[in-house]
Simulated scan of single mutants.
Amino acid sequence: MGQIGKPLEGVYVRLGELSGNYHVRNKQMAELILGGDCVSQGYINLPDKADNFYTDGGIRWFHTGDAVIMHQDGSCELIDHKSDIIKLENGKCVPLGKLESIYRMSEYVDNIYLHGNEGGKFLVSILIPDKDYISGLALSFGLSITSFSQIYTELTIKTAVADLIAKHAKSCKLSAHEIPAAVMLVDHEWTIGSGLLTTNHQLKRSLVHEKYEAEIAFLYEELSKSQNNNDTKREITVIAGE
């Protein structure tokens, strides 16, 4: 994510409309569509992706599926995959994939999945902590580790993780709506072999969501309870998963 520069010679650019009228930093986002002789005829053995390619004016075009901002100098800024961008109740657009990459930069995170509902209030997340970091944290609190599932239930660990998330978000200058309101810690591994990562170690977000659909629903239920109890504080709720 970030600046991807200007098109090379012989590469044409069109901007496709994104449903939802998405903006970031008061700038209109659009789908990046590339054209030119560099565009292939299509994907091999993927006929369901044929609609991503078309010919117009004698030029082959390709829908990249990426949301970008076009700057006045002709350069593009990649925001996220268009399928990974949502708009919250407050009208703020959230690039979920981009935020995940920001949180993964933290030393306490092994991997993370962020979820938000279109038109919803909050983000929630499924978090796989870095075990070496958590081990050191537990030792600093004088806790013995029988299993990571057990250590995630400790209040001191959950409080520390909430603090780490808040500090990392602040250091990265994230806004309040870009911080998950509820986090579930899980002692799992997301690998290529498990089918949850691509061969270049990108998260298969739809499959992760399918795997943790019940846990995500539970996180929102917990947030709903705190709202019903008139808990107006925006502290991060951390829950140990099974």
Rank of each mutant, 00 (worst) to 15 (best):
A50Y: 01
D51E: 10
T55S: 10
D56C: 03
G58K: 00
G58E: 06
R60A: 03
W61G: 07
F62I: 05
H63V: 08
H63R: 15
H63L: 09
D66Q: 05
M70F: 12
H71A: 13
H71Y: 13
S75C: 11
C76G: 12
C76M: 15
E77I: 11
E77Y: 10
E77P: 08
H81V: 11
H81A: 14
K82D: 12
I85D: 09
K87V: 15
K87F: 14
L88K: 03
L88G: 08
E89L: 13
E89Y: 09
E89S: 11
G91K: 08
G91D: 12
C93W: 10
V94Y: 05
P95V: 06
P95C: 07
K98T: 13
L99K: 10
L99E: 09
E100I: 10
S101M: 13
Y103D: 10
R104N: 15
M105S: 14
M105L: 13
E107D: 15
V109F: 02
V109N: 00
N111D: 15
I112G: 04
Y113T: 10
H115F: 14
G116H: 01
G116E: 04
G116R: 02
N117R: 14
N117C: 09
G119Q: 07
G120L: 02
G120V: 03
K121G: 01
K121A: 06
L123M: 03
I126M: 03
I128Q: 02
D130H: 05
Y133N: 07
I134M: 02
I134E: 06
S135W: 08
L139N: 03
L139C: 07
S140H: 02
G142P: 03
G142F: 04
